[in-house]
Amino acid sequence: MTDATPDGPDSAHRRPEGLDDATVEALGKLSESLEVVEHARGFLYAFHRLTGKADLALGEAVEQLRQAGHHGIADRIDREIVGRNVIEGRWTFQIVEDYDDNYYSAFKELEQQARDELAAGKRHLFEAEMKEDRRTHGLRHHEARPEVDPHAGS
């Protein structure tokens, strides 16, 4: 499918008929907030991975302490810290699952519903219009979208 407008956003990034500026701006802010949630989720997964990696390394340290003859401290660390919950009753995988199931998924679903109801499901309309305002039309590396190779698929 080709777009009739050769020098502008593709149809997926053009404002639907009748969509007002205030709604585009509000959807842009909603998208921005989702991006922050995605970033936070990345940190949560990093926390999960780093905590797990630390626990495995701690297990190795305990074994090395035992091999070095320090059984008392090794036993104490093994008993009190290795495999310990990071939050009452939870390991990090449980925190990640709870975040995903009870916050992240609800946020994504409502953001999608807002776009579907208000903008025919289109994403990044605010950014697409900002790009149109900021780019230098006709200048290389300021194209509205990638050029389609007319010879592709022949």
Rank of each mutant, 00 (worst) to 15 (best):
E147L: 13
H137N: 05
F126T: 01
E143M: 08
R115W: 04
E97A: 07
I81L: 14
V86D: 04
P146W: 07
V62P: 00
H141N: 12
F93Q: 12
E129G: 05
S105D: 08
L56E: 15
R76Q: 11
E111A: 12
D101V: 11
H142C: 07
K108D: 01
L139V: 10
G72K: 04
R90W: 15
D55L: 01
A128M: 04
Y104K: 08
L50F: 14
Y99F: 14
G138T: 06
H141K: 11
G52L: 01
L125E: 00
F107Y: 05
L110A: 08
R66Q: 11
E127T: 03
W91N: 05
V62M: 01
V96C: 05
M130E: 12
I73H: 07
A144Y: 08
E97C: 04
T92Y: 04
R123W: 02
D133M: 09
D149A: 03
L50A: 12
Q112M: 06
L56Q: 15
H151S: 13
H141E: 12
P150F: 10
A54E: 10
P146R: 08
A68H: 07
G52Q: 00
D149F: 04
L58P: 03
T51F: 11
A61K: 06
D133A: 09
A120S: 11
E111V: 13
M130F: 10
F93R: 15
E143H: 09
E97F: 01
G69E: 09
A74W: 01
K108N: 00
E63K: 09
Q94N: 14
W91I: 05
T136H: 02
E60Q: 12
F107H: 05
